[in-house]
């Protein structure tokens, strides 16, 4: 039980470090740690398929893509101009108001039943695959079209136009 609170503290701590780190590379490394704590959360929820997919897709693919783009852009000269303090305070107030609203709403509902896993093979690959390929077959195929169009779009955007250069 205390494992959850320790991991939750770690994920909040690392996500605060993500948005406060000055160097973008450090920011990405803290984001990797944050996603690792999310993987541990999925393991604690016994969602093993999601834990593996989170590990492979987020930590393996997306963050490597971020790091690679950062290297391509070559931002090693600490060139980020700081925002003015007024904007920062306004950002904190806005986010804080949002958080306060949600906390007040949760308190007002006053539901706190424990999350208990009734079906131990709920998040396993076998169970999820049956649901995915029976009820959600059409969204699955549509998401493959989405990935194809994203790939074509990314290649089209990132290549240099030969006529203009």
């Amino acid at each position: 039980m205390s494992t959850f609170y320790f991991i939750a503290f770690l994920s909040i701590f690392f996500s605060i470090l993500v948005i406060t780190a000055k160097n973008p590379v450090h920011s990405i490394l803290y984001l990797i740690l944050t996603f690792f704590t999310f993987t541990i959360h999925y393991v604690l929820l016994n969602a093993q398929f999601l834990a593996i997919v989170n590990f492979i897709v987020y930590m393996g693919a997306i963050l490597v893509l971020f790091l690679y783009t950062l290297m391509l852009i070559n931002l090693n000269k600490e060139s980020e101009p700081r925002k003015s303090n007024v904007v920062k305070i306004a950002g904190f107030v806005g986010g804080g108001c949002f958080l306060l609203t949600i906390i007040a709403a949760v308190k007002a509902f006053n539901i706190s039943q424990p999350v208990v896993l009734n079906d131990p093979n709920l998040g396993l690959v076998k169970n999820l695959g049956k649901i995915l390929f029976n009820e959600y077959l059409l969204p699955f195929e549509v998401s493959s079209v989405l990935l194809l169009s994203a790939m074509v779009g990314a290649v089209l955007l990132a290549t240099k136009d030969p006529k203009t250069t």
Binding site: M1, A8, S11, I12, K83, G94
Partner: peptide, 29 residues
């Protein structure tokens, strides 16, 4: 492990979501 109240999951997720909102608002990179 799983005797954690549902409220705590909601609180954790909303805290991290608002950290993300603050990050969008205060950074320029």
């Amino acid at each position: 492990i799983q005797a954690i109240p549902l409220n705590h999951y909601i609180l954790l997720s909303s805290i991290i979501f608002s950290i993300g909102v603050i990050g969008v608002l205060i950074r320029r990179n």
